[in-house]
Computed example of a mutant assay.
Amino acid sequence: MATVGRNIAAPLLFLNLVMYFIVLGFASWCINRYINGQTAHPSMGGNGATGFFLTFAILAAVAGIVSKFAGVRHIRSWRTDSLAEAGSSSLLALALTALAFGFACKHINIGGWRGWRLRILEAIIIILTFTQLLYVLLIHAGLFSSRYGPGYQDADYGIRVPGDEPKAGPAMVGSRI
């Protein structure tokens, strides 16, 4: 029954994965030019926020790509135990993407000459922040209803009734391997 969140999160996961790879490619190229001091390149440019923006864009891209691998595992199984891994890694990727978003806004606000690669990178980071936020909300939608995802109120996790403890006896003397 929990296919509503899963059917929407799966294409969004793939879209975010592709966008994170694009960010990684553009940010890697730009930071290579920036480190080499080639900011006069026609498609580079930059200002005072460029170094910080590129650093956090690469960090966000790497964390986002890794979180999507955990997300694929969660979407395949769609269980509460896989949600912990996918949810925590995607939340970390969202935090780093939000930092890169802030530096992208500062980068745009300072102005100056910015090449087409930097402008594309700014735009993709801004779009990616909102799609990653939507993805995080979708995989956590089970908090509100089990129709949207794996529910957090599973009866067999962490709740023990008195008298529910395993009994020690002759059948539980040794362990079987």
Rank of each mutant, 00 (worst) to 15 (best):
L128P: 00
P11V: 13
R176H: 07
D156A: 09
L24W: 13
F130C: 07
P150M: 05
R79C: 01
L54N: 02
A86T: 09
Q132D: 13
L59H: 08
Y152L: 04
F53W: 08
L59N: 11
W78V: 02
G5F: 01
C105H: 08
L138A: 12
A141G: 02
G46V: 03
I108L: 12
A171S: 14
E122W: 01
P150K: 02
W116K: 10
F56D: 04
W113I: 05
V23F: 06
F103V: 03
G102L: 06
L94A: 14
A95S: 13
M172P: 00
E165F: 01
A61W: 05
N7Y: 07
H140L: 05
R117Y: 09
S146W: 05
G142D: 04
I159W: 14
R119Y: 06
K106N: 10
M172R: 14
N109K: 07
F53E: 03
G51N: 08
S146Q: 12
L128V: 05
Q153I: 01
L143C: 02
N109L: 07
R160T: 11
R76P: 00
L99S: 11
A95I: 13
I75N: 10
L13V: 10
W78I: 01
P170S: 15
S145T: 14
G25S: 13
F56I: 04
A2S: 11
Q38L: 05
G111V: 09
A40M: 12
V23M: 13
Y20C: 01
A40K: 10
P162Y: 11
I35V: 13
G51T: 12
A27F: 06
Y148H: 06
P42D: 15
A95F: 11
W116S: 13
L83T: 07
S145H: 05
P170V: 14
M19S: 14
S67D: 10
V136D: 06
L128G: 07
A171M: 12
N7Q: 13
A171R: 12
A10S: 14
E165N: 06
A60S: 15
S90D: 15
H74A: 07
W29D: 06
T131H: 08
L59P: 00
T129E: 14
D154Y: 08
A141W: 05
V62K: 05
K106L: 12
R117C: 01
D81H: 09
W116D: 12
S82E: 13
S88M: 10
N32R: 10
I139Q: 04
D164P: 00
R147G: 04
G5N: 02
K167C: 02
S82R: 14
A95M: 11
T55G: 06
H107R: 04
G142P: 00
S146L: 00
Y20R: 07
E85D: 12
E122L: 00
W29Q: 04
G5M: 01
A2Q: 08
G25P: 00
L17V: 07
G87M: 03
T50E: 03
L96V: 09
G142L: 02
